[in-house]
Each structure stands twice: as C-alpha cells, then as structure tokens.
C-alpha cells in the first residue's frame, strides 16, 4: 500500500518530506525514485534536491517558486513513482578496501575512552559483543559479508551513509559515542545506528571506529582520476562493497594515492528495487559478480 509522505517546512527556503520513520531499503529506494523524478523536471527556483536515508528535502527560492507549487510537484513525483516495479535504477558498484583495526583509528579511539559506553574495550570489541558475535573476526566477516547501499551523502562534503543490503535480522546496529570525539582521522571507517560511513576529512565524530580506508572520499585538488568531475566520490545510490585488506595492500594503495594514479575498481548494475528487497543475497551476488568477474 502506498504511504503518503509527511511534508513539513524548514523555514521559508526548505520543504522536507519524510517517507518513513525507520530505515529500510524500501524507503531509500523510494527516496531515490522521487528525487530523481523531481530533478528531471528541472523546476526553476529549485536550488538543491537533497536525498537522505528515509526522507529528502528541497531548498528553493520562494521569490521564484512558491512553496505550494513545489509541494504539488513533490506530491506528483511521489504518486508517479509509487509503483516500485516500474522504477528502474542504475548504480555504480564499487570495491572499497578497508584496513580493520589500524593503528591510526586505534590511537584516536583510545584517546576518547572517557566518551565511550565501554571504556575498557575497543570500539570493535564492544560492537562485536553487543551484536552477538563471539569474536572480532566473525564480526568483521559480517561487516564485509554483504555490500552496502549509499543511502545518503552529507554531514561534511562526500561522507557516505552506507546501509547494508542484508535482511533486517542480520543488520548490525551500534550506538554512537556517549559524547562525540573531538578527533577522527581522515578516511576512518565508522559505524553508528544502522549505518557505516567513511569520514572524508579529519574532524569531530560520534561513530564507532573500526578501521581506515586507503582510498580518499574527498579530493579538494581533484588530482585523482575518479575526482575529475567532483571533489567528492560517493553518490547516493552507489553500492559499496567493503573488502578487508592487509597492511601491505593498504600501503601499496596509499602509494598509488600519493602518485596520483589510484582508481576505485568499479562497474555498474541495473535493477528493480523489488529484486533487491525480495532477494538481497541474490542481488548482491549478481552485482559483485560483475565487479570481481567471477
């Protein structure tokens, strides 16, 4: 059954639409379909269309486009795309290497134990424990065991919120820090709520820290080939497959970044949202088969 989104104002320049209170692949695919439809209308007076996890918002210039007119267009895009079987999506599938339990995030998290729920363990030990995994290794296996949908970007430029494409009963959930850290290394791999993320730049942060990515998320100078079009790499709708790597591979990839020839391994996949929702494992196999060629 089609659920009408909840529409609300964010002052005089924003309209906000919430599709669901809880996170799900369904809600995020609905967000993608609606915001894509809305974008294609190229409405004069629309400044930004910002898809989020289970909601989206539009920044508009009320001198050019009235809130009433924009709301009618948002409702129209919702109705037009409400039959998900008719929605066809295309996504980049990206190999994202992660060095788990690296020395840099370890140093950052050890300095912030007074802000953490479990001061006597590391973030990954704590997260493994509360999610019912016997060992850290089993937990890491679960983290990399299925790919993730980039369900939103933002916070700071490029930060991807990543929601694992796996049945609800297997999804990992962790609380955020009791009080945010003041320091998080650039490219740290974190987890908070039901979302994994990579911090694009050094800064504050409240997600549990599990590792670090060798590949950048943000490239201000747009030096690397993957950043020619934009300073940021992730795009909402991307499918990220996190892959555990060794320190040796990490260092080799960092050297490529330094030399300016690092490129993400990627392919693309076309799908109907229903396929992913009804058979997440089958879909993941198909998407990753294209990526790793097996």
């Amino acid at each position: 059954m089609h659920m009408e989104p909840r529409y609300t104002y964010g002052g005089d320049e924003f309209l906000f639409a919430e599709l669901a209170e809880e996170m799900s692949l369904e809600a995020n695919f609905r967000v993608s379909a609606i915001t894509q439809h809305l974008k294609n209308k190229e409405l004069s007076g629309v400044v930004d269309i910002c898809p989020a996890n289970a909601s989206y918002m539009v920044r508009f210039n009320p001198d050019v486009l009235s809130a009433e007119k924009l709301l009618a267009e948002m409702q129209n895009s919702d109705r037009t795309t409400s039959q998900s079987s008719r929605v066809h999506l295309s996504a980049r599938v990206v190999d994202v290497p992660i060095l788990f339990e690296d020395p840099w995030t370890r140093e950052a998290l050890m300095k912030a134990r007074d802000r953490h729920q479990a001061p006597d363990s590391t973030d990954i030990e704590y997260a493994a424990d509360i999610n019912g995994y016997a060992t850290k290794e089993d937990f890491i296996q679960a983290l990399v065991g299925a790919p993730y949908l980039v369900s939103m970007t933002g916070f700071v430029p490029g930060l991807p919120w990543c929601f694992q494409i796996t049945p609800r009963n297997r999804q990992i959930e962790v609380p955020k820090y009791v009080r945010p850290r003041t320091y998080t290394p650039e490219r740290a791999f974190g987890f908070g709520g039901a979302f994994a993320c990579i911090y694009p730049v050094q800064g504050a942060g409240g997600y549990q820290l599990f590792g670090i990515a060798p590949g950048p998320i943000f490239d201000r100078e747009q030096r690397l080939p993957d950043f020619k079009e934009s300073m940021v790499f992730p795009q909402p709708g991307d499918i990220f497959n996190y892959r555990a790597i060794t320190m040796e591979e990490y260092e080799a990839l960092r050297a490529q970044v330094e030399q300016g020839n690092f490129q993400y391994r990627m392919t693309s996949v076309e799908f109907h949202p229903d396929e992913v929702i009804s058979d997440p494992e089958g879909f993941s196999r198909r998407a990753l088969g294209g990526l790793y060629g097996d």
Binding site: E22, N53, R168
Partner: peptide
C-alpha cells in the same frame, strides 16, 4: 530501526 538510541535521535536526515 536505524535511528540510534537517544530519544532526540531520528534516522539521519538533511
């Protein structure tokens, strides 16, 4: 689901 544990938390949004 996905919102985080504090009552001031919602599923991350814009």
């Amino acid at each position: 689901f996905g919102a985080g544990s504090n009552p001031s938390n919602v599923v991350d949004c814009g």
